[in-house]
Simulated scan of single mutants.
Amino acid sequence: MKKSKARDKIVETASRLFYQQGCVATGINQIIKESGVAKTTLYEHFHSKEDLLVEYLTNISDETDGWLKAEVDKFNSPKEKVMALFDFLAVLSSRADYCGCSFLNMVSDIPFDSGRANAIIKKQKDNVRALFAEILKPMKKEQLADELYMLFDGALITNKVHGGAWPVQTAKNIAEKLI
């Protein structure tokens, strides 16, 4: 599909609203109003709200995978790489505009049978697990990938509930002991 400034504005607006409010609370009319496009323009680019959600999740998945890989690539040892992921999480979760993990927020907001959206969320989470396994491969400790992934996502969820730095720091401390 042809890219346009209007399409970009729709995606930017929908992405911001989905992240801040969730999918269910974000209406098409709000996206239209805040993006400043006509309803017909929105529907020329996206046939449904689900199409917009899939675009948002795909974009943020690619972005997140890139961020995580960039953090890992700054270090040499597997332990440093794992710790870097938790440090990245600590920085991210301390930002004033942080509203939680986009994927965990969305998976609790959309119906379980939202096939395309849930598939993107699952794939992104599988990418995180695979990244941990890849990092641990030189140590022959790939089996710890699931545990580290659970600590990583658990820190995200606990931070969403309690706020503060302690959930991520606690997860990092446990991860350090595992490695």
Rank of each mutant, 00 (worst) to 15 (best):
W166E: 14
T13L: 03
I157Q: 15
G164V: 03
L131H: 04
T170M: 09
N118Q: 15
K2S: 12
F112D: 15
L92S: 11
L68A: 07
E71H: 10
V54F: 03
T64G: 05
S77C: 08
L92A: 13
K160Q: 12
K137C: 08
T13G: 03
N29W: 14
M150G: 08
R129I: 14
L85Y: 02
V24Q: 15
N59W: 07
K2G: 11
G100K: 10
D109H: 02
V24N: 12
N76R: 15
N29D: 13
I110H: 04
A133C: 03
Y56M: 05
K9N: 03
D126F: 10
K177T: 04
T64M: 10
K177V: 01
A130V: 06
N127I: 06
S94Q: 13
G22T: 02
N29V: 13
G163Q: 04
K177F: 03
F46Y: 09
C99E: 14
G66A: 07
G154Q: 00
L89A: 13
F152G: 03
D87V: 06
I31E: 01
V82Q: 00
G27M: 07
E34L: 12
Y19A: 01
M83S: 07
I157A: 13
A84W: 08
Q20W: 04
F86M: 06
E50Q: 09
E12Q: 08
L144W: 10
M106V: 15
A90N: 14
K5R: 12
A96G: 07
N159Y: 10
Q143K: 14
P111G: 00
K81M: 05
I31L: 05
L89P: 02
C99G: 09
V128D: 01
K33E: 13
P138T: 04
V11E: 04
E44S: 15
N159T: 13
S94E: 14
R116W: 12
I120L: 10
D73A: 11
D87F: 07
P78F: 04
M139C: 11
L85C: 05
Y149G: 10
E134A: 11
I121S: 00
A6F: 08
C99D: 09
V128M: 05
K5N: 12
L136A: 01
V91C: 04
W166Q: 13
R95K: 09
I60M: 12
R129M: 15
A38Q: 12
L144D: 05
L178P: 08
R129L: 14
A171L: 00
V11H: 07
L104P: 02
G22C: 01
L68V: 04
Q20N: 08
K177W: 02
T26A: 09
A6V: 12
N159M: 08
F112H: 13
K74P: 02
H47S: 15
R7Q: 10
